[in-house]
């Protein structure tokens, strides 16, 4: 599944960041590498973007871009 489908408050692990270009480079630099744990904290008041926690900090990105992030199925 992809990150945009993860329920708020559930944990999962990153498998891979797909897509290409500077956005993907930036996501990798920010620590979205395989096996990294992520939790979605909340969505912005207007429904997009989302806020997630990884490696002990908070990051925000858009749902559209979260579709490129493959994660393990939440159990």
């Amino acid at each position: 599944m992809t990150l945009d489908q993860l329920e708020i408050g559930k944990k999962s692990k990153i498998i891979a960041v797909h897509g290409q270009g500077s956005l993907r480079d930036r996501l990798l630099d920010m620590g979205l590498t395989p096996r990294t744990e992520v939790i979605i904290r909340k969505t912005a008041p207007l429904g997009d973007p989302i806020e997630l926690t990884l490696r002990g900090y908070q990051l925000t990105l858009r749902l559209e871009d979260a579709k490129n992030i493959e994660i393990e199925d939440a159990s």
Partner: peptide, 8 residues
Amino acid sequence: APFIMELP
């Protein structure tokens, strides 16, 4: 442009 930003 994409929107990726830290929320400190």
